[in-house]
Design a binder for these strands. Structure first.
Lengths: 126, 126
DNA sequence: ATATGTACCGTGTATACTATTGGTACAAGG
DNA sequence: CCTTGTACCAATAGTATACACGGTACATAT
């Protein structure tokens, strides 16, 4: 598995890491069950903070691309190859587009939509 | 109809204007069919820019609280009393809350939701 | 000429928000 | 003592955007 992190890139580091790992899974560079470097290991190798790697790992686990087994380390998920093609964000995007389109047809202003979105997010966080 | 605009208030001017007019309708200070001051008139009376008043008027017309008849001026909508209780923004808020709640249950991060929202808004504007 | 609402171009400012990153500490286990 | 993953709190910098404002122009009609 070959990973290249470009600090100059505008793309966030954790996002780069996710992409690279998913690519490695799809390339076949890594197989289900393979062990991944630990969070701190990975952080040292690329000069990143361990929190940044942890963020990437937690997102990858949510998507069932990897599996964390606590102190035993992190491994490629059995169904990694399928799961890393599923794009949760694309689903979110589509759903939101439909809603926003409906709002606009009703005459709602962009500003009002944005304000409503902010309110909704705040309401669900407190 | 008595209108009071407070520049010191943090609430936007156009928003204050909308509220006051809706209140006047509900109070009965104005009745359906009554004429409203013209945009420029209203702007002069309160020392506001005419664009600010125009914004308030256009939103009120969208909500069918007032009716603009071009060069003939602006009047209170026949169904103003009912329509000014309908809150379009509340509807938007509720719809978005439902969607966001569904996203969160699926494990989508707040950040990802926000990014998806931005993307959707941009996509529908270009 | 004057008045109506509306549309387009623009400017600036202040604010609020958020993503990213970092540091520290914890429980569980070898 | 070492590792594993994870949770908490904090600071920074950058972005985005809402808001108000200005000017000009148009078609319409008195």
């Amino acid at each position: 598995m070959e990973i290249i992190i470009d600090i100059e890139d505008t793309e966030p580091l954790f996002s780069q890491l996710i992409k690279q790992i998913k690519q490695a899974v799809q390339n076949g560079s890594v197989s289900p069950g393979d062990a991944l470097p630990s969070i701190r290991q990975m952080a040292n190798d690329f000069g990143m903070n361990s929190k940044t790697v942890a963020k990437a790992y937690s997102l990858l686990e949510r998507d069932s691309v990897i599996q964390t087994r606590g102190y035993r380390g992190t491994f490629i998920h059995p169904d990694a190859r399928n799961n890393c093609t599923v794009d949760l964000n694309a689903w979110v995007l589509q759903e939101l587009r439909n809603k926003i389109e409906a709002f606009k047809k009703a005459g709602v202003t962009d500003s009002e939509i944005r304000i409503g979105f902010s309110s909704a997010m705040n309401a669900l966080n407190s």
